[in-house]
């Protein structure tokens, strides 16, 4: 016997997913550039949210410093490109490698020495902050003055060097998000997914049944770090500029975790739904305020806070679990 197995998502869920994917593939043909940028932002938050969800949602390890891996991925791939002409199609491997090393270091320190819960979360913040300060003084990549990629207008899309139109970036991100979704789906149904669930629900009990808790927690952190670093590669080549205070900032880490928390922690679809809801509401708010001519700095953060409060008070498991029940997709229990 190869261990417990969850039923694969029912036919209905498959059809809905297929429709969603088709819709997302067609949208660039009909939307204007502004809406395309909003869609890209949604996908970006969905992707990094899913990456973070592997660690917290699946394995129950709270990281409040996930901007660390995004930033490392961004800087490593950008620096290789700018200084040595290494295309991101290769550079992403280095980005993953560096993120893995950092993830492994944090995981090893924490899990070997029994750092858990709030202290573990603090450790992740500390690593992100130290790295930010380090990069502020890292002149090879521009220090606090920022690091810039040459913006070359091309009339063709170059996936190897990640130079091209917003549509190309959108489709790349869509592929990444779909790939991440599939990977997470597979993981949740695998033995590993059950080990993570056991660790999340009761680490002592997981130990008592003979799960190598250290190993599977390390796996969660490293996988989550590697996935997040790819979001960094995307960001670097999409925005063409990197500032340590922006990319490593705690605000970024918070932004990463809001989607999955609001959408539904530990669920597959939660991060995507959360990213969608948050971004659409935030953009709507921004548009309304612009139209009214109101300027309030920091209103987005306040708004995020209100969303979070609302969800924690009324939908503590996130939007997706209750929506799923209403859609009759709940064949699969908690997932």
């Amino acid at each position: 016997m190869s261990g417990p197995r969850r039923a694969a998502p029912g036919g209905r869920a498959r059809v809905l997913l297929g429709l969603l994917l088709a819709l997302l593939m067609l949208l660039p043909f009909v939307v204007n550039p502004y809406l395309l940028s909003v869609l890209t932002l949604i996908l970006y938050l969905a992707y990094v949210g899913q990456a973070w969800n592997v660690m917290m949602g699946f394995a129950g390890q709270l990281s409040l410093g996930h901007s660390l891996y995004v930033g490392l991925g961004a800087y490593v791939s950008a620096a290789l490109f700018v200084h040595y002409g290494v295309p991101p199609a290769l550079g992403f491997l280095a980005a993953i490698l560096v993120a893995l090393v950092f993830g492994a270091a944090i995981g090893f320190l924490a899990f070997r020495f029994g750092v858990s819960g709030v202290y573990f979360a603090l450790l992740t913040i500390a690593f992100a902050e130290f790295t930010r300060i380090g990069f502020d003084h890292f002149d090879w990549v521009g220090g606090s003055g920022g690091f810039f990629l040459k913006v070359a207008q091309r009339d063709y899309n170059d996936l190897v060097n990640l130079r091209g139109s917003p549509e190309m970036f959108y489709y790349l991100l869509l592929a990444m998000t779909a790939g991440c979704f599939l990977l997470c789906h597979r993981l949740m149904q695998s033995r590993i997914g059950f080990y993570w669930l056991a660790i999340r629900e009761d680490q002592e009990a997981a130990q008592a049944v003979g799960i190598d808790v250290f190993r599977y927690k390390m796996l969660a952190v490293m996988l989550s770090a590697a996935l997040a670093s790819l979001a960094g590669v995307f960001t670097a080549f999409f925005n063409n500029n990197l500032f340590p205070f922006q990319i490593f900032g705690i605000e970024k880490s918070i932004e990463i975790i809001l989607g999955p928390i609001i959408g539904g922690l530990g669920t597959l679809f939660g991060p995507i739904l959360g990213a969608f809801v948050l971004t659409v509401l935030a953009e709507g708010l921004r548009g309304t305020m612009e139209a009214l001519g109101v300027v309030l700095p920091g209103v987005k953060q306040v708004f995020y806070g209100i969303c979070l409060l609302f969800v924690i008070m009324f939908l503590p498991h996130g939007i997706w679990p209750s929506l799923r029940r209403r859609l009759g997709l709940d064949s699969d229990g908690r997932r």
Partner: peptide, 21 residues
């Protein structure tokens, strides 16, 4: 272990299966 440490969201059967990993 003390305090009946079962995995609350897993089914009875899944809990048992976890014991045989």
């Amino acid at each position: 272990a003390e305090g009946r440490q079962v995995f609350p969201s897993m089914s009875v059967q899944e809990n048992l299966e976890m014991g045989a990993m």
